[in-house]
């Protein structure tokens, strides 16, 4: 067995976000130590989407990141890392395959439902089917789990893990598992860093009404109508859901903007590019603006500030959209220059 495949040597650490944390854990174990921010940026994780005709737990789909599984797919592709990903129709087959992989010494990533994981405190469990964790071993009927958002290694009974892997509903995991078949083939990260930034610029500046900057502007206009459309009570629930997606579910705050700013800072060092450092500072300030929006929204939900209206909240989102529009256009120009520089080397 190769050393990199030995789960006994797996080092657990806590991350802000589950998918980038799981991928960082797998890559670190495979011998490529990367920070969570680098993984998030290499995977082009930053996005914004407002899709009112798709409902998640009864609310319009609102997201500050790319689709589930996207970070794993893009990072492993960029780093030319051989991987296997599978979904299953039958739970028994999925669990048997997991046991077989663990016996072979693999660290296995799983997509699960947070709601069915007993080691997550009850107050934090909710119906979200795209939570990522790593399984590093098995003892009797219990699996040894490295959950990226939990501080220490933990255990999970087979029955519970199986239920979490086959939860139904939106983004149903269908037993999805993934693992690395070998270490990354790329050692020079610079082209992958530039590519990751280009992916984010493309997605944020895309000419589609529900995504990126246009998605933010769409939501800013739509939220002014939420009270009329949904009623006072449900409109507040919508706001609370938006705050949760922005500040809670492992985003690192500011809807992943702080994590992405940390990525730009690390990329600035690796690419010797001062412009990226300046953009990182600006994105941190934009993250603060998103947080101010969340603060106003929270006060609106709690009825603590009568000066906050859905119109004023929409204006705050518009302001963030305008700032991000300018930032990602500059980042796009910077990546073009960097790409030419790298080609010339």
């Amino acid at each position: 067995m190769s050393e990199w495949l030995a789960p006994n040597s797996f080092q657990h650490r806590q991350y802000a976000h589950c998918e980038s944390g799981a991928v960082a854990g797998l890559l670190n174990h495979a011998g490529l130590p990367l920070s969570e921010a680098l993984v998030f940026g290499l995977g082009g994780g930053l996005f914004f989407g407002y899709v009112p005709f798709v409902k998640l737990n009864g609310f319009p789909l609102m997201t500050y990141r790319c689709y589930p599984g996207g970070i794993f797919k893009r990072v492993t592709h960029s780093l030319r890392c051989p991987v296997v990903q599978k979904r299953y129709r039958h739970p028994q087959q999925a669990m048997a395959e997991l046991d077989r992989l663990l016996e072979q010494g693999h660290v296995v990533g799983l997509q699960t439902s947070v709601f069915w994981l007993p080691y997550i405190p009850a107050a934090l469990r909710f119906h979200f089917n795209a939570h990522n964790l790593l399984v590093i071993g098995k003892e009797g009927s219990r699996y040894r789990i490295s959950d990226p958002v939990v501080s220490d290694l933990t255990w999970c009974e087979e029955e519970d893990l199986c239920r979490a892997r086959f939860a139904r509903g939106a983004l149903a995991p269908k037993g999805r598992c993934y693992y690395l078949q070998g270490p990354p083939q790329v050692t020079d990260l610079r082209p992958a860093l530039v590519h990751g930034m280009q992916v984010v610029c493309r997605d944020m500046l895309a000419p589609i009404p529900v995504g990126g900057i246009r998605g933010m502007r769409f939501m800013a206009c739509a939220m002014e109508q939420w009270e009329q459309r949904y009623g006072v009570r449900k409109a507040r629930y919508c706001l609370a859901q938006l705050i949760r997606m922005q500040e809670e579910i492992g985003t690192g705050g500011g809807g992943f903007r702080f994590i992405y700013a940390a990525f730009l800072q690390e990329a600035a060092v690796q690419l010797h590019c001062e412009k990226l450092e300046a953009l990182s500072d600006r994105l941190t300030a934009i993250g603060d603006a998103w947080r101010e929006f969340a603060l106003s929204a929270a006060r609106c939900c709690k009825g603590r500030d009568e000066t906050v209206t859905y119109h004023s909240l929409g204006q705050q989102v518009l302001d963030c959209a305008n700032q991000e529009d300018a930032l990602f256009r500059e980042l796009r120009e910077t990546t073009r220059t960097l790409k030419h520089q790298l080609k010339g080397l």
């Binding site: 806590q14 991350y15 802000a16 920070s35 969570e36 921010a37 934090l124 958002v149 500040e247 809670e248 492992g250 690192g252 705050g253 500011g254 702080f258 994590i259 700013a261 940390a262 941190t284 993250g287 603060d288 947080r291 101010e292 603060l295």
Partner: peptide, 19 residues
Amino acid sequence: VVAVQKHYGVRIGGENTGR
């Protein structure tokens, strides 16, 4: 989180999990 940032000048965010 916002009050602490304004009062003490420390940002809770990024890879420092708020949780």
